[in-house]
Design a protein around this nucleic acid. Structure first.
Lengths: 142, 142
DNA sequence: GAATGTGATGTTAATGATAATCATTCCTAT
DNA sequence: ATAGGAATGATTATCATTAACATCACATTC
């Protein structure tokens, strides 16, 4: 009786694959995982889940508000637990490490810019691509 | 003798497909075009160019600094002429219309946020996903 | 201005990420 | 425990993009 609460209250039936995926996100130190990441990590721990199911569960979790999707470099999507507080991201081009930040001024000026032009903001994404300093950066494209 | 100047000075051999693609970007009212968009528009005008060539030319133009690539909704990339001045984008979720904006305060606060965390900014992208007002919005996913 | 070699092109096949299909299996309410 | 519908997994399909490779075009030399 770990996360079934979440699943139930999110309107999702409590199943083994869903519990496993949710557990993974809650226990992993890397908060940003792609479908492939999830699939491989579950394989590694013996908690096998089909790849198609991983994709489906991620979509369901996203729609249920449990996960948030990000499209960084363009090709593959990554997901992170939705902790309620919106934030933007800095992605290291070398090691792919992701750091989060929040700037209230940026947020408000975004909304202002959109409103001035007659747009109703639904969502927004701000990603900074950078190189992080040596000690922290293993310089390995994971 | 239209754009060959650009191509030459960009270190690119002046060829028919490249001239056609460049002309398209310079004459199109829609400034943001995907590879598929370019391919179809050239087909429509009879200026046939192979799809693979379109992809190659877009990459070359991007590397040469003639075009800038954006990854909006996640799946496909769109390109626009590089006019030198960086800007962010507001994308209408309904009609896919793209509007540009620039906010110096946002820019500086981004750099500040990255610097404070020990990152050397290489690039950044800020996209606002919104719905635009009726008169402007044909509400058609083009 | 024609030959020539390198680089560009187009067709087609391959790739990688993701979505759809469908038969089988698992929840949950009865 | 059982029935019924939703969830799963294996496989196949799809979509955007890239790779291969034989052919062809540009720019330069003669």
């Amino acid at each position: 009786m770990n996360q079934p609460i979440h699943l139930k209250s999110a309107g999702l039936k409590s199943t083994l694959p869903r519990i496993r995926v949710l557990n993974l996100f809650e226990s992993s130190d890397e908060h940003h995982l792609s479908a492939e990441d999830v699939y491989k990590k579950l394989l590694a721990t013996g908690d096998d889940v089909g790849l198609a199911t991983v994709y489906r569960v991620l979509i369901q979790f996203e729609q249920a508000g449990l996960l948030v999707r990000h499209n960084f470099a363009g090709d593959k999507s990554v997901f992170e637990l939705n902790q309620g507080k919106h934030h933007d991201h800095i992605v290291c081009l070398q090691c792919h490490r992701v750091e989060e930040f929040y700037d209230a001024t940026i947020e408000s000026r975004q909304n202002k810019a959109a409103a001035e032009r007659g747009f109703t903001v639904q969502d927004h994404s701000l990603n900074i691509y950078a190189n992080c300093i040596k000690p922290k950066c293993p310089n390995k494209p994971r």
